[in-house]
Amino acid sequence: MIAWWQIAILTLYAGYQILDELQIYSAMSSPVFAGLVTGLVMGDMRAGLLIGASMQLTVLGVGTFGGASRIDANSGTILATAFSISSGMKPAAAVAAIAVPVASIMIQTDILARFANTFFAHKIDKMVDEYNYKGIERYFIAGALPWALSRMIPVGLALAFGGGFVANLARVLNTSWKWLGDGLATAGAVLPAVGFAILLHYLPVKKHFAYLILGFTVTMLFSTVFGNIQTLGTAVAGVAKTFTTSFNGLSMLAIALIGFAFAAIAYQQSTATNAGGGSGSSDKKPAADEKGEIEDDEL
């Protein structure tokens, strides 16, 4: 059962996250943060992080390009996490059974919000004719309403009334239809592959394929080594009581730093050739020196 205050907080967050994504883009509108928030509110942070991470990876390459609607992984994460914790469905199964279907249905409400705002755009035209500055600003800010409501209404309704249905579903998946429950859990584990493939389509893979191999191989080797050491450590600790060292898994941040080093080398090389005036047009020499301040702001 989901308490009313939990529904209230999660519904408010559902409204906040879309405004955040449109405006300041603070990463508090990411699926992994949505999972964290919902997990904390529902009392199981770990489950929330698991579901959020899966959805984060699934939509890794799906950006909002040119105002196209994309699947709403955040709302999917909120509902999947809340129901997974309240009904005892396995997090990995909840990703495939709840988060993905919800996320794709919510494309429709996104489209609705973008249509609704056309109404306010016409109101603003009228205010411009009347020199009504306050009116322009009022109708512009009112645009936040369709955006927020397009997330809050479906999420709030689902949280309030969907519990019984999901509880039944969870029971069936854990018992008589266990094959389906296991299958959905497997699907949840495979889904991140879609996010990676989308991202690869978006990146110049053919040009940089060597880095793809490097990233894969370096990480695969290290993760195998780290994984084996962890297994060994756990086994030894089980036998010898004096063995208290615990081994951590592979740090993704360290892998990212290796990748960053490759990128930095490539950046230095390409700016060095440009500043030397080797390629293309004539007036590049002064440009490279004057622009120090802009380069510092990035990354």
Partner: peptide, 14 residues
């Protein structure tokens, strides 16, 4: 994009 491609390789492996 180099870092992006590298990271995708790392993600596939983990």
């Amino acid at each position: 994009t180099i870092m992006g491609v590298f990271m995708v390789g790392a993600l596939v492996a983990t």
